[in-house]
């Protein structure tokens, strides 16, 4: 049986407990929310921890407040299942809820939290392996090695951003609240991510992500298309989060973020800009989809081949935009969250 290493456990009861414990030994301390990312990483010895601060019993971190008209705040310890069972989120932010519905499987959504999903470690098939396996490749840059095996000449790590909720929330211009002994700051969620497989978050090691804030839903349409092998469990090999506003027949705002094709949820800015001021015709959508491929940098470190995943960026952006435009589908997304949404009514 795979087992955890030993560590000192701090069961925080208040946010102050947690930030204090973190400030004591930022390098040696890990936070645990739902545990579905940290515990496997510790069991595989990807990550070490002198101490682990448990957030499960911290008061006030779990819950959903507000409404789509004024904006919604979600506590970081809110489970993914809690989100699916919240009708107002479905109404106001369908792209975000679809993304959450696409995450892993129901049993993991019962455990996993939104904060945890946003802070999910980047993934790579050269990294997410057991210690013995990693020893046999001489480890990699994300750990103690000096090579990024997916791009051996590269000076950087190309581990993949693998959260479904992140690109969806980026496309919706959500904000996150970070808390530390120094106080609190609020940043756009896109700024939470760094273009690096190792230091993938801009959050400092003394900060705790406590809240996710969604602005008023307004007339924005949103969706999320996820590509993965199986109907459940798998991480995305591509996630497309799209949010649009239409003014009359033309697009007045557009955001497209791509997950799992870079070390951070990458914005397809040229594609989004191409839509502005235009009506969503098949041609406009196809042109935007083609432009969206450009910022994607899939490499051979997930399921499927990288050439195909790059091609799928076009197909999925096209598909997501067609869905929002009400056009008949050309491609079918491998996961669209329907089953989870029906189950968790």
């Amino acid at each position: 049986m795979m087992r955890l290493p030993t560590f000192t456990y701090v069961g925080a009861k208040t946010l102050e407990d947690a930030v204090t414990a973190l400030a004591d030994d930022p390098e040696g301390t890990r936070l645990v929310a739902g545990g579905t990312d940290l515990w496997p990483n510790l069991k595989r010895r990807h990550q070490g921890a002198r101490s682990v601060v448990g957030l499960r019993r911290v008061a006030g971190l779990r819950g959903i407040t507000g409404d789509p008209a004024a904006g919604v705040t979600i506590g970081a310890m809110t489970t993914l299942t809690d989100i699916l069972r919240c009708p107002m989120l479905r109404d106001g932010y369908p792209g975000f809820v679809r993304a959450v519905a696409s995450i892993s499987s129901p049993v993991l959504r019962n455990m996993g939290t939104l904060g945890g999903n946003l802070c999910l470690d980047t993934r790579c098939t050269y990294y997410n392996q057991n210690e013995e396996w990693r020893q046999s490749i001489g480890y990699c840059m994300k750990e103690v090695g000096d090579t990024c095996w997916v791009a051996p000449g590269s000076p950087r790590c190309w581990a993949v951003q693998a959260s479904d909720s992140a690109p969806a929330l980026c496309s919706l211009d959500a904000h996150v609240v970070l808390h530390s002994t120094a106080g609190e700051r609020v940043i756009p969620i896109a700024d939470l991510y760094n273009d690096d497989g190792i230091v993938y978050l801009t959050k400092s090691r003394t900060e705790i992500l406590t809240e996710i804030r969604l602005g008023p839903a307004g007339a924005r349409r949103s969706t999320y298309w996820k590509l993965r092998r199986r109907g459940s469990i798998d991480f995305p090999v591509l996630g497309v989060g799209v949010a649009l506003e239409l003014d009359g027949g033309t697009v007045s705002s557009a955001k497209i973020h791509l997950g799992a094709v870079h070390s951070f949820p990458v914005a397809a800015t040229a594609a989004a800009a191409h839509l502005l001021g235009k009506s969503l015709t098949e041609d406009v959508i196809a042109e935007a989809a083609e432009l969206a491929k450009d910022p994607a940098s899939p490499l051979d470190n997930t399921d499927f081949t990288l050439q195909w995943r790059r091609r799928m960026v076009g197909s999925y952006v096209d598909g997501a935009l067609r869905e929002l435009a009400g056009l008949p589908p050309k491609a079918t997304p491998s996961v669209h969250g329907e089953g989870a949404l029906a189950l968790e009514v």
Binding site: L4, W39, P40, G54, V107, L108, M111
Partner: peptide
Amino acid sequence: GEPQLSCLVLARE
């Protein structure tokens, strides 16, 4: 009452 994976739950939590 909710299904969870016992391999990813620290017992004392």
